[in-house]
Structure formats: structure tokens, C-alpha cells
Amino acid sequence: MNALDPLLLVLHALRCGGHSGVARVAAATCMDESEAESELIDLAVAGLVTYQGGRFGAWGLTDAGRVADAERITGELDSAGARPAVTAAYRAFMALNPELLDLCTAWQMRPLDGVVTANDHTDPAYDARVLGQFTAFHRRAEIVCADLAAALPRFGRYRDRLALALERAEAGRLEYLVDDISAYHTVWAELHEDLLATLGIAR
């Protein structure tokens, strides 16, 4: 199976993101929504995904879909001989992970006169400082993403999505740090989940 097959990309996006609406699947796979939806329908016909309706309606994997995804992901990892490289990148990711969470927390909360307070984003100097640290952090995260993409090309999508989130935040769309389905923190957490899924590590 081809790693970049759109059908499988969508399948794996649901594995890493859990139940998701079309918008989130499209964001995770870098497709447009109609394309993502058509792949979802094909997967549903194959019995690999299913739609749950209601107020929080979303697409999710069936048991068969979960098995199919695991087979394909493990097969891809081993046929590419990528396990050592992905394992090393996972360690590097885990060393960065607490720092990214510190950055997200600093974006949301800040100490004022010793009182930790919700950051109300009325102090541009503080926000610029945090954003500057996101940028500095990203330079190191990019190295890990590049190593991953070299080992398994589909990981290149995370590098692009993280870069795009940061670019948007730097352009003043501040929701792209932690608040959006394509925010830096969201993409980072999906990458975390993908690494666990790919290496077969339980949480």
C-alpha cells in the first residue's frame, strides 16, 4: 500500500485524532473538505469508518478500521526500515514536549505580582515574548520533524502544519497557537499520538 494514498491518510488521521468532523480530518490531511468527505464515504462503504450523528457528530474508526490502520502503519514502518529512526525521533520529541506545554501554559497564564492570572492578551510585549519563544522552539522542533519526514514521508505533513500554524500566529491570528483545530498545540498533540500509534506504544 502506498503511504500517501489519500484513503489511508484519512484512515490514519482518525486513528491519531479520534472521532473528528470533516473539517478536522481535512486539516489533518491537508485536503479540502469535499475531498476528505469523499474519502470518508469510501472508507465507510469499506466498513472501516462510521459516522455518529448528534450535536457532536463525527467520523470515527470501526474495529475493522483500527485493525486495518495498525497493519498498514506497522507494515510501512518495517518495510521502510524506519523503526530506529522513528524511535530516535520519538525520544527527541519527548524531550521537547514539556517545553511546548510550558509555552502553551505561558500563553494562557502569566504571573502578575506573584499572582498567576489568565493572560488577557492586553500586554503586547508579553505576548511577543511568548510568541518569540514559540518561534525559537519551532526551529528545534523542525529538526525532529525533518528527521521523521526523512524516515517516513507522511510525517512531512506535521512539519508543514506546524510551520503554517506558527506563520499564522505571527501574522496576528493568535488562535493558531492553542485554540484552533489547526493550532500549533493541536498539531503537536496529533504528532504525539501518531508517534505512539506508529511505534505501538501504549499511553
Binding site: 485524532g17 479520534g18 473528528s20 478536522r24 450535536r55 498533540a189 504525539h192 499520538e193 499511553r203
Partner: peptide, 14 residues
Amino acid sequence: RPETSPHDLRGLAA
């Protein structure tokens, strides 16, 4: 939850 992951975004929203 013991901890949350991207899988829980829908649950967090609900």
C-alpha cells in the same frame, strides 16, 4: 480520564 489526548477533543467539547 486518566489523561487526555487528541482523541478526547470531542469529549472535551461536549
